[in-house]
Design a protein around this nucleic acid. Structure first.
Length: 281
DNA sequence: GTTGAGCGTT
């Protein structure tokens, strides 16, 4: 009866999307569903997750049927402690189409590019949003591990610095350095692909900071940590959407390990890299 | 095993 389990937005015509922030990474839709449903009719609950890691990003979207219920949920669940974390419930500002919505209310259902005549200009809302950049660079807080820093740049501009600022001084050196590195990378690739190929296997730009941190230094004996960990999905396909399953599949059992659930760990990952040819110089 | 700004999916 429910579209729970399906892919993509079910039916957003008169639904109100609520954005739940500051939720625990372990919190699942199943935990939020009964929580929000108590205050109103929840149409769907969706928790965005990283495509690389597959883990929750720390926020969820709860779709309500009525605005009053949504508002009530916000007033009730906003600031509440969920899973040991203070969650923040508020109306979504942008819809799944990257379009601004009013009070979490979907102005119009997503129109598939079928026979839509643009003459009507029904959606004159240009994608004036750089959120595609942010979500792409958004990689949790791996920044300290040396993952993405572009996010910091935006934060500074927004003056939204919360409490910490590891890179308060944005020296142009970084740009030059990065540029130089990029240039060098290009040249290296042009000269010999052998080396570039070694790092290419690391999928998209992995961690340039690491190499840039110590270019003249020999790389650690540690092999490149291929971030592509268990991308198989640690949870059932239903995890994508809310599942009316009150039972928690967490590791609360203790003995029940999350791995034993349904993960086919591929130990062969270590063999991904070429044995013997590290590609280092 | 971890992390903690921010707005979404086949």
């Amino acid at each position: 009866m429910s579209h729970f389990g399906r892919t993509g937005p079910p039916d957003i015509r008169d639904t109100f999307s609520l954005l739940v922030l500051n939720i625990s990474f372990r919190t699942t839709a199943d935990d939020l569903f009964p929580l929000f449903e108590r205050y109103g009719k929840v149409v769907d609950v969706f928790i965005p997750r990283d495509r690389r890691t597959g883990d929750s990003r720390g926020f969820a979207f709860v779709r309500y049927r009525y605005a009053d219920e949504a508002q009530k949920a916000i007033d009730r669940l906003d600031g509440r402690s969920v899973d040991g974390r203070n969650i923040m419930v508020q109306f979504a500002k942008y819809g799944p189409n990257a379009e601004p919505i009013r009070k979490g209310r979907v102005l119009e259902v997503v129109e598939k590019s079928r026979d839509r005549d643009r003459s009507r200009s029904r959606s004159p809302r240009p994608r004036h949003r750089d959120r595609d950049h942010r979500r792409r660079s958004r990689s949790r807080s791996r920044e300290r591990h040396g993952r993405d820093r572009d996010r910091d740049y935006r934060r500074q501009s927004k003056s939204k610095s919360r409490s910490r600022s590891r890179s308060p001084s944005s020296s142009p050196d970084h740009k030059n350095r990065r540029r130089a590195r990029d240039d060098d990378k290009r040249q290296s690739r042009s000269k010999s692909r052998s080396r570039s190929r070694s790092r290419s296997r690391s999928y998209h730009s992995a961690s340039p900071a690491r190499r840039g941190a110590s270019p003249h230094k020999s790389p650690p004996p540690r092999r490149s940590p291929t971030p592509e960990k268990h991308a198989n999905g640690k949870d059932s396909p239903l995890s994508h959407s809310v599942s009316p399953s009150p039972k928690r599949e967490k590791h609360a059992n203790g003995k029940d390990s999350p791995l034993s659930r349904s993960v086919s760990p591929s130990p062969k990952r270590a063999g991904s890299r070429s044995p013997g040819s590290d590609g280092r110089e």
